[in-house]
């Protein structure tokens, strides 16, 4: 996988200065603050963050699934194929969802209608967007069920969601999302509700499908273990801003932002199992709520490297600081010596 900066083709998705504000009780609360990113064909970008970081809101904005302008304002650009989705009418947007951009969610049961057969639910999108005969649609549904690894697809296409296991339901949801061969698949915590063995199967399935179709994927998760399984690049989000971005290897092995370092050190490792390696790394305090962000860097009250007069005064920009493919939003990056980072990991 080449790094996106060296890629010559146009990105499938290009997000510029995406800002989302929720309106409530006459107040506007920004929840996503001007984020930028690109995803290329065949590439998987993982968006990582804890609850409240704004990662799911971002993905909902890309799909235009957020409430209307009375409740929320979205600014910036979401470009797919030269079109800014934020400017489309709802009717036009309907023709984009499916063939251009599709989404799968955490809980497969809520994405499926319990009183319709799964085959009909997959066929619905095809019937809506494509002029195909019944027999052609049926063949396509069978093909999709086979693609997502559902055994005995002829029989399963007439089953109801309730008769399927969680893993099989998520496969059906993936088949629905893939029905119109989208250029971009957004996967919002698609394996969080599944058992580990099933999760491993679904991640492998997504990788495999991506290899075959070359689609771009935005994968949203809070789990760095899952990130390591699926991502080419990683964006870490905190309080509605991207705080670090880089290639998978770089972010996992050389995290630069103290927040990312803290997150990684808090994950228990299989290699340490049973060794009583002592306390896990923690991040003091809590994720601030939107609308109550501290001055300066949003992370500074929790940051072991924060310096008064520096970190609490200005919001740092997401900048390369010497590593163009691994920008970070930290004013202290030059001062945080490599030895400091090692201390954090113990």
């Amino acid at each position: 996988m080449t790094t996106p900066s060296s890629s010559t083709t146009d990105p499938v998705l290009s997000v510029r200065d995406l800002t989302i504000r929720f309106k409530a009780r006459g107040r506007e609360t920004p929840v996503v603050h001007g984020i930028d990113f690109d995803i290329h064909g065949g590439e998987t970008l993982a968006l990582v963050g804890e609850s409240g970081s704004g990662k799911s809101v971002t993905s909902f904005a890309l799909m235009r699934l957020l409430p209307d302008a009375r409740h929320c304002t979205i600014e910036g650009q979401v470009n797919i194929g030269g079109v800014n989705l934020l400017e489309l009418t709802e009717r036009k947007m309907t023709s984009v969802r499916g063939p251009k951009i599709a989404m799968i969610f955490q809980e497969p049961l809520t994405s499926l209608n319990p009183v319709h057969r799964v085959g009909d639910q997959i066929a619905e999108a095809i019937r809506y967007h494509r002029k195909m005969t019944r027999a052609q649609i049926r063949d396509r549904v069978l093909e999709l069920l086979t693609l997502v690894g559902i055994p005995d697809p002829e029989r399963r296409m007439s089953a109801y969601p309730g008769a399927m296991s969680g893993g099989m339901r998520q496969r059906v949801v993936i088949a629905m999302a893939l029905a119109l061969e989208p250029d971009l698949l957004i996967a919002d915590e698609p394996t969080t509700a599944l058992d580990v063995t099933v999760q491993a199967q679904i991640l492998e399935l997504l990788r495999d499908i991506q290899n075959r179709t070359g689609m771009a994927m935005l994968f949203i998760t809070h789990d760095f273990g899952v990130v390591a399984e699926i991502a080419d690049r990683v964006m870490v989000m905190y309080s509605g801003r991207i705080v670090e971005e880089g290639r998978l290897e770089d972010v996992l092995t050389q995290p630069r932002m103290p927040y990312t370092q803290g997150l990684l050190s808090s994950v228990p490792r299989l290699e340490d199992a049973g060794l009583r390696t002592g306390a896990l790394g923690t991040i003091e305090g809590f994720v601030p709520t939107a609308g109550n962000l501290p001055d300066g860097c949003s992370f500074h009250p929790r940051c072991p490297h924060a310096r008064p007069g520096v970190c609490d005064t200005a919001m740092p920009a997401l900048e390369p600081h010497g590593r163009p493919d691994h920008p970070v939003r930290c004013l202290r990056i030059e001062d945080i010596a490599a030895s400091d980072m090692e201390d954090l990991s113990v």
Binding site: V196, T197, Q199, A200, L203, A228, L252, V267, R269, E271
Partner: peptide, 10 residues
């Protein structure tokens, strides 16, 4: 089970 557990390693 062990082999299915995702780990944040490259």
């Amino acid at each position: 089970l062990l082999s299915a557990a995702p780990q944040p390693t490259v």
